[in-house]
Amino acid sequence: MATVAATGLDEVGVGRPFRAAVLVLVAGFFLIPVLASARYSLLGTHGHITLSAYRSLFADPNFWASLWLSFKIAVGSMLLTASLVVPTSIWVNSRSPRLARAMDAISLLPLGVPSVVVVLGFLGAYHGLLSILLSSPLILVPIYAMLALPYSYRTFDTAVRALQVGPLTDAAHSLGAGWIATTLHVLLPNLRVGLLGSLILSGAYALGEFVVASLLSFNTFPVYIVQIGLTAAAEAVAVSLVALLIAFLPLSVITLAGRGGSKGVV
């Protein structure tokens, strides 16, 4: 308990009993909905345990179609994110710290405009050319890449800053490496965790996003969950539980691996 001694919180009422009580309550609040979903999805209104909710879910072609669509959009959004974030962040950090900080601030701009307002503005601004663009779910790829930028850019950028790009490129340069070799063999191998974190955040955003897809009438996975929830509650709870657990996994990987810059990570 070295940290407790260091901060002296024990003496001012944040001792062991307080910690135990608060942590038990908090753990309960976060575990109960997950456990309740598991029970609800297995019992439904049948009164006995059955896998019927999961069985009818997996037999529904729309389940697989919407999951596949969301998967493709997520992959596209990750590719676009990588091609935007990697060169930009490396460039600005190797040029000037002031520019790097400006870009960091700009990458937070999407937080200032709620996604529903982005859709509204999109429909207003691109009214003319949009009928063609908007008929294909491909349009979701750039929108999601943009909306996830506050998370994806910052995660990668933090890794680049920690790396001290300047001295490394100097060293590579003096050994005769060009910029391609420097990027591929010196910088990127050191930025793997940051890049992985950045891509997972952008992919997770694309997999879970509901507002834009629903307003533009594309049947992505979250839209499917809401639709099925209108008629079959047990199935919707079952698929939500699966979706929550799927989301927990990669996010746990990056937070444990790299202490990435997901929501609010300092």
């Binding site: 976060f30 969950i225 929830g229 919707a236």
Partner: peptide
């Protein structure tokens, strides 16, 4: 802290149904 970071990123549609079940 990692758990907090993961949970802060949940939300959206699945959370609504988890609470309907709760």
């Amino acid at each position: 802290q990692s758990a907090s970071s993961v949970l802060a990123n949940t939300g959206g549609v699945p959370l609504a149904f988890a609470f309907i079940a709760t």
